[in-house]
Nucleic acid binder design. Sequence first.
DNA 1: AGTTTGATGACTGTTACTGACATCAGCGTA
DNA 2: TACGCTGATGTCAGTAACAGTCATCAAACT
Lengths: 189, 189
Amino acid sequence: MGRWEPDSRGRLQEAALALFAERGFDQVTAAEIAARAGLTERTFFRHFADKREVLFGGSELLRERILTGVTGAPATDGPLEVVAAGLAAAASMLGEFRRDLSLQRQAVIDANPELRERELAKLADYASEVAAALRRRGVGEPRATLAAEAGMAVLRTSLQRWASSPVERSLSAMVQESLGELRAVALGS
Amino acid sequence: MGRWEPDSRGRLQEAALALFAERGFDQVTAAEIAARAGLTERTFFRHFADKREVLFGGSELLRERILTGVTGAPATDGPLEVVAAGLAAAASMLGEFRRDLSLQRQAVIDANPELRERELAKLADYASEVAAALRRRGVGEPRATLAAEAGMAVLRTSLQRWASSPVERSLSAMVQESLGELRAVALGS
DNA sequence: AGTTTGATGACTGTTACTGACATCAGCGTA
DNA sequence: TACGCTGATGTCAGTAACAGTCATCAAACT
């Protein structure tokens, strides 16, 4: 057995989500999260750049999933199809892995403006990387950026609807539906 | 003459922009901004909810402009045309009023992740209000939200390109061009 | 056995922000 | 004119987010 309990980072994430869900984001201090995980405040900030980041530990993984989906799309696909492939990859990941925790996490985020800001920033980061991938495929600007940003808008709205929907619907289906709506909007209907 | 110099809020905004442009956002304290404006730190936080907000004092005005543009669009317009009317109103406001300050401000924002987060949040707020206006016009969900979000993506990318473009091009023209690109993307090209 | 490494704790400091109370010019009102 | 009210500001004290620095010590390596 090691000198410390293993997976400090994971314990911090669990503790944070539980406390945030209980009392709300700004009614919980970093020191409390750390204490619940059997650690100190200083260690909390070694694992996470700021208090908000503790809720976005999986975002790196999601980023990779999206990028993998995008680069794996057929060479003949148009920009929006390529983006859609990335969205499908993201949706399958978010929708299948611990649905209960995903929903709880989304509820916490939606309840706090600072956390919503951070979520938007993450999505924007994905968008700029997807745009870069599109450019590597030969898509010019500003088309690449717009396709990527529109795609992230689809993901964002689907996430919102998925989290607040009373009935249990698959996230992937919602993404598909929203993509269709986006096309319809652009066509002028 | 009043007890204090007039327009504290404006003086704080001016002082902040100048200092941020000089030294960068996080190398300037709220107390320094206040001192430069002849005020105290406490008064700074009475005028602005947090340090970032001092750069977004005009956002309320912009919000109204966008909403006015949207509600003023012909009843026969489709969702994207309606959104486009709001974007045109926003572009004319940003493009004509103190171009030098707008550019300096945008440069400061683009140089700092926290400020970019805040800007995204503002745009997202506009989007949700535009979506509400569309719903009042009878557009259903998720179509209304997607049209609004796509529109804000157009505004965001245009703003970016406008601020970083070496040649002097009108913001309105860039918004128009980006809208065309968005339509092309959705059509599958 | 000795050395190095990496994760953690302990301590200290800065700064963003907040609550509570005091001040005082200007205004309305008696 | 005198008097009380209001609103913007100053002052002071406090909390919590974060960061720099050094010590510790199990485990891995040589």
